[in-house]
Simulated scan of single mutants.
Amino acid sequence: MKEGALDAKAARIDLTADYVKFIRSYIDLKKIRDKKFKVLVDAMHGSGDSFILRILRGTRIRLEFIRNSINPSFGGSRPEPIEENLEELKSRVKKGKFDLGIALDGDADRIAAVAPGGAFIHPQKILALLALHLNQDRHWSGGIVKTVCGTTMIDNIAKFLRVKLYETPVGFKYISNLMETEDILTGGEEAGGMGVKGYIPERDGTIAGLLLLEMMAYRKKNILKILNETEEQFGRFYYLRSDLKLGKKVELKKADLPGELLGVKVVEVKDYDGLKLICADKSWLMFRASGTEPIMRVYSEAKTLKKSKRLLELGRALVNK
């Protein structure tokens, strides 16, 4: 091949303009336009650094960014929107009196959020808010998809809205498959990947964050008040996870697990992706081994933080015994 022949046939195409145009048509900018919400975006040195700014151009939203420079090493930390990686965002939201903090992972397909005062909003709760917003404010139809390690709050919301709840193994590919074949309003995984109706069957942290902002505009409330009202109606659940690095692969067997947890009877065991023990009081403990390395993921959820921590401790002990 002659030198320069490849260059002559190659063309650079900028798809970002089409992406921004579509999101601007998807989000209800008329509702948002005159709101003066103060929003802080933590791009975590990833690819989602400027899209929200371009999408919200022409509105009165006061938008600021942190960690929005391109950095191949992501500042020396994992670009994952988990609470331990978002201390700066939490602190800045609190000190700067922001109405909402949005955290995007390295490729901007996952999200976490921070409420006024610096309170972390777990992706599980974001999924709950998206379901309520799209159903009650936008009046859209469709079921809700969660994974087997998803919060019980989603079950309560689906029951209240009278929509079908789908539960899948862990992994967004299972949610994506349902979005292609069923009428799905929204679906999400505990790691922060969210998909919504009227969009491609894929995760997008940017659109999820903008829908939170839209929900605030529709309800004329800040995100903390909306979340508090949601938890008052559908239950406050404390969700925890611990990744145990083991010397060798450990396989827990259903028969070896206890029939009660912290004195409460286990009434159901799900074993199609890991082992999930569900108690009579709706608290639960789950074990899921990594398929690629000697790591056991232990999940717990209860109606008090103290009990969720005790369940997690019990889970660790069962793995290590």
Rank of each mutant, 00 (worst) to 15 (best):
C279I: 03
P169R: 13
K125I: 06
L314Q: 11
R297D: 03
K164I: 00
K254A: 06
K197W: 03
S47Y: 05
L29P: 04
K253C: 01
A113K: 04
F160E: 14
K276L: 11
D204N: 14
F51D: 00
I70H: 13
V196H: 08
A103K: 02
G106C: 11
E83V: 02
H139Q: 15
K220H: 08
A8V: 01
G4M: 14
N320W: 11
K225H: 04
D243P: 01
T181C: 06
L257N: 11
K225W: 02
K254L: 12
N228Q: 11
V145R: 00
E182P: 00
D271F: 12
G193T: 08
Q124H: 15
K164R: 15
L213N: 03
V170Q: 08
K9F: 15
T230Y: 01
K254C: 03
A158E: 05
Q136S: 14
T152C: 04
F22V: 04
Q233M: 12
L312P: 08
I121G: 02
G106A: 11
K9L: 15
A108G: 01
V298E: 08
L261K: 08
P79W: 14
S73I: 15
S69A: 12
Y238I: 00
I27S: 02
I121Q: 03
A103G: 02
Y239I: 07
G187S: 04
L53R: 00
D183E: 11
D271A: 15
I121C: 04
R12A: 06
R316C: 09
L15D: 01
F51P: 00
V163W: 00
G188T: 06
F74M: 08
F287T: 05
F74W: 13
E232L: 12
L127S: 04
P123A: 03
P201I: 10
R78C: 02
D273C: 10
F65Y: 14
E214A: 10
N135G: 05
G274H: 09
N222Q: 03
K146D: 01
A8C: 04
K9T: 10
K306T: 06
K125R: 08
L134C: 08
V267Y: 05
M194P: 01
K249D: 08
C149M: 13
K125P: 00
